[in-house]
Design a protein around this nucleic acid. Sequence first.
DNA 1: GGTGTTTTGTCGGCTGGCCGACGGAAAGCC
DNA 2: GGCTTTCCGTCGGCCAGCCGACAAAACACC
Lengths: 225, 225
Amino acid sequence: MSPISIAAPPSATPGFDPASRFPPGFLEGFGVRDLPGGYLLATPGQPLDQVFIVRSGRVRVYLASEARELSLAILEPGDVFVTHTPTFVQTLEPVTLWVLGTREFAARLAREPSITPAIMRVLGRILSNAVALVEDLAFRDVPARLARFLVRQAEQRGVMEADGCLLPLRLGTEDIACLLGTTRQSVSSQMNQWQREGLLTRRSRHALLIHDLPALALRSLASSG
Amino acid sequence: MSPISIAAPPSATPGFDPASRFPPGFLEGFGVRDLPGGYLLATPGQPLDQVFIVRSGRVRVYLASEARELSLAILEPGDVFVTHTPTFVQTLEPVTLWVLGTREFAARLAREPSITPAIMRVLGRILSNAVALVEDLAFRDVPARLARFLVRQAEQRGVMEADGCLLPLRLGTEDIACLLGTTRQSVSSQMNQWQREGLLTRRSRHALLIHDLPALALRSLASSG
DNA sequence: GGTGTTTTGTCGGCTGGCCGACGGAAAGCC
DNA sequence: GGCTTTCCGTCGGCCAGCCGACAAAACACC
């Protein structure tokens, strides 16, 4: 999950084994935890430091003020995160996680230093994503953010077809708006604008057909400052 | 340097030894590098991965679009950073750094696992700061961001006096605007607004006297969404 | 202390995008 | 199929804050 995303790894092909992402034996020591959908597993208030990896299901990481929410990432199987940051973390559906306390994790690293470089890469990627998110908010207007979002989604999940790139979306308009730091209305109107221009077609509520990907990419360049 | 800041450690008291922040012997292996003012030591393009620590002088970390710049942090002696992120890093004045390549750094961690927890704490703090920055941009309007900035500065560097808290500022209006993701004009007018309300006095170009810190803190709460 | 340069204060116009409201469409549910 | 509920599209009003422009002040340098 991408343009606005703080999570660790690159894209996930559907139907793969999340454990295959990690060195053999890496997951030993992690606890397995099953959670129901809608479960809030971390808040800014009580930071029970934990490293977790999503095994199945989706998890949303977000910030909230009194009036609004901003999704930082929607984690999918294989994604890594640390509850060491002042964010809310909530399951979107029933979820299975691998979990380990940060202290134990650090001790583990100390015992098996060979995995340290891999971890540093993951952390570096998380930080890079956070920086990219700041860049998006500071420099790009809503159309550009939305275009970027769609292009990235297409790169990750798009399926080429005769008349364009079919993009299965598991998010509603409101969810997208929340990822982009804007409103339902702005996303909706922009999307329909592009539909009228022939850039894309709303195939169904959860599928989008992008006809002109390059044109979208063009609109994803900075234009708000 | 704070409300908008991605850098690692808490505040620095002036005239301290930056090396004292780290475990004895930690800095062995680091190279020492002297750079002139205005030197650009990293850009998003070529990520020569390095871990560096500021020994003296100030360093600015920022993002740039064609039309605008956003400062992520102004690093001071003792601050740690990684050029592993797609940002610009530039010296503001002549600077001395301790530098080590990320590969060597990781190897070092692998050899001396005892310092790993400390490093994870530093990375966690950097990430938390980045998240806080996103929060600022997404949820707070300009007055709130500015108020927060001033309050934090006061906490870190302010000197209590009879008629308030004297705040030595090494930044101009434009620099502050750049840290807050806004414009010179907005900062200026808001500051003078508060001056008229008696909250603060512009003592000189580089010094500010804050009379009513609590009132400022009140204005630093979210109000743009 | 005069003179050029940089920094700051202020104003008005303009606009992106938020907000509230409401009708229509799709999807779930029996 | 009918019903309910959730989701989506669109419009008009409104406002924060950016932009350009210019004057005044602070500072630096001789």
